[in-house]
Amino acid sequence: MNLTLKVWRQKNANDPGQLETYQAKEIPSEASFLEMLDIVNNQILEQGQDPIHFDHDCREGICGMCSLNINGIPHSKEQGITTCQVHMRKFSDGDTIWIEPFRAKAFPIVKDLVVDRSSFDRIIQAGGYIDVRTGSAPDANSVPISKEVADAAFDAATCIGCGACVAACKNASAMLFVSAKASHLNQLPQGAPEKEARVIGMVEQMDEEGFGNCTNHFECEAVCPKSISADNIAKLNRDYLLAKAKQSVSS
């Protein structure tokens, strides 16, 4: 396959950056999207130029490291997969492909297609954990959890924190990420005791990081590689309201 790539190139955080055009020649259709970029980078290196920088790690859809807006959509228009799981057979010979970084004020660009998503880490530090006494491992199945709760918590827990929800949102809102992380722990008996502090802490940190607000467009749900439902957002809204109500009468 021969393709035309329009790739965002930006030297560093302060560089304004611009789209540059590359010809990707003789790309095998069985190559993954990132392998296609590897091939193009080899060609760029052979010419003695700076290769295209992009994030990647496991290349099997579980680590949350790869990003990229492909033709305007995070992780491409294919549903329920990450960029590393996109294969070139989904494109046609002669296509022009736009490749941009995930864009949001809270995800500053480091270089080219690499963005700094550590704002997500700070949200997790604000409540996306449980406090436990470390000691010997508890007996398996000693805490009974119903099948429905276990399934719902697991669905939320599949979030890999890639940031596609923020990248797709017209407001760069992190609500799908935050709600998935909160809902995962809030539903389980191990996480329930700290539910209110968690919800308030994570939402306040989310606001502080400069993410926008959810306006119920559901773009996040459409691009989430783990198909996490916006039901979690409704749940977070409700939990936040109840937590603040409780805080107002108890403090």
Partner: peptide, 27 residues
């Protein structure tokens, strides 16, 4: 909220919309 939303977003060169309705985008 709209001021905060506008400030949070940086624009894409290639925009695409999958689910957001026209009504939701001109609120």
């Amino acid at each position: 909220l709209t001021i905060k939303n506008r400030a949070s977003r940086t624009a894409y060169q290639k925009e695409a919309t999958q689910r957001a309705s026209k009504s939701s985008r001109i609120m």
